[in-house]
Design a protein around this nucleic acid. Structure first.
Lengths: 253, 253
DNA sequence: CGTCTTTTTGAGCGTTGTCAAAAGAGGTGG
DNA sequence: CCACCTCTTTTGACAACGCTCAAAAAGACG
């Protein structure tokens, strides 16, 4: 479980580029001119896949790059002084992680692959240079960071105000929305994280997560088969989510 | 309690400018050339003071500007679908708010003055233009947003993992650090928010906040006199804070 | 000085965490 | 391919932390 060398490229020539990447519409939801996409392409490094459990970067490590998930899932987490881990986020394909490292030039969290995962590495210094030439790229980065702030604040509402049922429902519906946006089923998907990781993330004990999910199934809200989740009663689940999810709900141009 | 007109300037010529502002070192912790500070100055509007309870901006309102607090304090909050408010942050002098509005071009939260408060309004479109001419300003904005992401994640750890004692201790120590950074006493300060607002922010009932503070006083950790707080046993308080506060602790250049 | 709000304090209850153990899933090697 | 081991998930019993309700005390404000 060592941090993989940031310089290790993986078959760079053969892997798809931004133009061909099915995620580009999500990853770059701006109308970049072809030449601009090319310029972006040139700074992006496509790394060898991470195996389950491998670290993409480590808390305290010098910040170099932000990463876009291509396939797989990652979690980011802190290690508290009592030695336990606190998960601060899960990252699905098309999503960007590492932005929190800009401030101190150090990653404040570690990022670990939950399954075999491929990412695009975007050296931030290069990206920042490029924003001087492509103003819309700059705006896009501002927006991505702003969005992250919104999302985290919704998470704060979840942690501070919601009970166990609402937390679990919100978590599942959040994943549902994210899968839907990527063109996957909004009602049927596979959890790449363990119950324990869900509980950790939601501020709940594992047992509580398990109990809530079982009860949801009994009540016909969802169907659980191990890590496979099917959302059966979408309206009722939405109702449980409750509080307005300002940032998550609104579709972005 | 209406939103004040964003165009209302307050005595713009007479109020201090960035060069003279005692907060500039915090507000602009970068070595901007004099001419650059001037350019920044020109886009900043200094608004008339907000009275306690007035809104600086309202959830759902179109995003125009970010704001730097000059004096006073603000809170940002969401209104949940059950009509209750969820406070997402408190803002002290030199701190910037409104960044979460960039993403949707809409403020996802409302901002309300907790006391008489003055702010500098920075129209974001102008600021963004200016970043094209001043790369270090652009970097500074990236850093500020990155910092906000770090801070919010620390807040997520607090809400998800800490008990009532640790939450209250963390809250007080966080304020202490912020006051210290601004040159005020780290051990003696005035809370501009009510117990109810603290509880709301920390995910605790008012009564719990009150009880914890009373107990802290009994145990010689702090001294409470209404809204006046004195931190008596700083090491013990730091110990209670517990988990590593990666972002908050490190001093920024 | 009276009224309204905020804060404090007390009592009792409920949700969720902890502990424990069984059941299930996944991985390894013979 | 099955047996075995380990890790994860589920389920149950119980306890505790923090919430709710209620009322008194202390401030704030006109």
């Amino acid at each position: 479980m060592s941090v993989i060398n940031a310089n290790t490229r993986f078959n760079s020539k053969l892997t798809s580029q931004c133009q061909n990447c099915s995620l580009s519409a999500l990853c770059l939801p701006i109308a970049l001119a072809d030449e601009d996409v090319n310029r972006l392409d040139q700074i992006i490094e496509r790394k060898r896949p991470l195996k389950k459990g491998e670290l993409l970067f480590r808390q305290g490590q010098e910040f170099d790059s932000v990463f876009a998930v291509r396939t797989g899932t990652l979690k980011t987490f802190n290690i508290t002084n009592t030695g336990e881990e606190q998960i601060t986020g899960f990252y699905c394909p098309s999503e960007l992680l590492g932005l929190s490292g800009i401030d101190n030039n150090t990653y404040p969290v570690s990022a670990k692959a939950l399954e075999t995962t491929t990412v695009c590495e975007i050296p931030f210094a290069h990206l920042e240079q490029l924003t001087a030439q492509i103003p819309s790229l700059k705006h896009q980065i501002f927006r991505l960071m702003s969005r992250k702030i919104c999302d985290d604040q919704q998470m704060m509402v979840l942690l501070g105000k919601k009970n166990a049922d609402e937390k679990v429902a919100s978590f599942l519906m959040n994943l549902s929305h994210r899968f839907k946006k990527r063109g996957y089923s909004a009602t049927s998907f596979r959890l790449s994280m363990s119950r324990s990781e869900i509980g950790n993330y939601l501020g709940l004990a594992v047992e509580t997560v398990s109990r809530v999910m079982t009860r949801f199934q009994k009540n016909g809200l969802i169907d659980v088969d191990g890590k496979e989740i099917t959302i059966v009663d979408l309206p009722e689940m939405e109702k449980l989510v409750g509080v307005v999810e300002e940032c998550g709900k609104i579709e972005h141009a």
